[in-house]
Design a protein around this nucleic acid. Structure first.
Lengths: 247, 247
DNA sequence: AGGGTACTTTGACCGAAATCAAATGGAAAC
DNA sequence: GTTTCCATTTGATTTCGGTCAAAGTACCCT
């Protein structure tokens, strides 16, 4: 069951996503306090929000747009290690510095809380620490699922896996059922997809073309994707687990 | 700073590792309760401790030996997603089922706690939830660091990265300083190394031979490794971060 | 409309790692 | 001792994805 499914109530103030993510019981007192310390930040596509190693003085969640967590080697090779879609949480309570770069992949709005007040609240409100533990375990599962993709899947399977994740996340946002074709816009450039999948952008492009030729997907434009048969796509991804993905 | 460094006191009863891992302040009351519900389990090399999807009714930590977390596709491709060395924690408070197989890579002793009593204690003792959150964040960082290895490093760099991690963990166990050669036994078969690195066992063998030829490492036997110059090895691994690895 | 820029596709070629296959080594069992 | 079994090494060949290069496409900006 996803995070969204567990806490999908709407009476959580003007930043509902954030509260759904943190407040397990949506109690009014906790909410009031969160309301008092929250603020919004906007970023442009391409902007780096936090540099690896820098002090990170806030936590927050994505309201709209896409952010990514990336690691870079000295010679420039980069690997995306997380994809943050709306409602995803960013931040490490109890940590001083960021362990990797956080980059706005598209224009982005985040709902933030200064770290220290948030940590104080965590101490006063055990629910929150436990909720954060659950969320972190979910992220850990997603990261490990992704290790299988990076370590053992072919380029074609990697592309199918990524499309599958984005399609599933997007479908759950739009409350559509599991039947029928799924339509969405790819929020990533070919290069960003390559960085996520451990491929080159040329290989990404070639494999997308191949999936199109084999009618696993349809492209109305470079970015606008239709998936006529989700089951077929998941076969292509080599996925036995029909769910469970979280990132 | 590693987990070990933060909690390296010795007055924690007969299962000190376990308590170092969970009890942030080593308070006597908590310890007593933990003592009452703990028990030990032994496993033989190769034994599967938990199957992915099975109910998991305990949490615990590795006392001696090595366990690994692995994911397997239908066609048999497998990816190791975590390596559990002595003092590492296993288990998901708040989760019913295991998300991947846990396998004893060597003969193994674990110190376990039934899950429900442990969860009850977690609720009563906020420290523990917060400590577990910290540990889970560490694991998440390690998993993401490993994603860079899997996605972007060459076979030679992958091998060097793995040797580097094991050497560092082993060195910290034996309290040796950072200077001088490091000697240890490889606790993994070539195949297990391959599964961890997303390679084939042949490639692992070839790259180890190559590192030996280039005198980055010395092999007294197939498994007994000497690293004359840790800095050199880390260069080979492409590591800028001279530390931080946890798994 | 024209020109610039950034993103994407496609082609030709190359190389690192996979695959297939055989030989070697080392330890336990008979 | 030698047989058996398993882990490991090494060799020959193939293949998938990377690299280098060029062309195509869409969008923005005067």
């Amino acid at each position: 069951m996803t995070l969204k499914a567990q806490f999908d109530h709407t009476n959580c103030g003007e930043c509902p996503i954030r509260h759904r993510a943190v407040c397990a019981h949506c109690e009014r007192d906790e909410l009031k306090e969160l309301e008092n310390i929250k603020y919004y930040r906007s970023f442009e596509a391409g902007q780096t929000i936090i540099w690896s190693g820098d002090p990170m003085n806030f936590v927050g969640s994505v309201v709209s747009g896409i952010a990514s967590l990336t690691q870079t080697m000295e010679d420039g090779r980069t690997q995306m290690v997380g994809l943050l879609l709306p409602s995803d949480f960013v931040g490490r309570p109890g940590r001083e510095t960021a362990p990797y770069d956080v980059v706005a992949t598209t224009d982005l709005v985040m709902c933030c809380f200064r770290k220290h007040p948030f940590e104080d609240m965590m101490v006063k409100t055990p629910h929150i620490a436990q909720r954060l533990l659950q969320m972190t375990l979910d992220e850990l599962d997603a990261a490990r699922e992704w290790m299988l993709v990076l370590g053992r899947k072919t380029a074609r399977e990697k592309i199918a896996s990524l499309l599958s994740i984005i399609a599933r996340r997007d479908a759950s946002l739009h409350h559509s059922g599991m039947a029928g074709p799924i339509v969405f816009d790819l929020p990533l450039t070919r290069e960003a997809m390559a960085d996520y999948l451990g491929l080159t952008l040329e290989t990404v492009s070639r494999q997308i073309s191949a999936l199109k030729k084999d009618q696993v997907i349809t492209l109305e434009s470079k970015r606008h994707v239709t998936i006529p048969d989700m089951g077929r796509l998941m076969e292509e991804a080599g996925d036995d687990t029909d769910g469970g993905f979280l990132v």
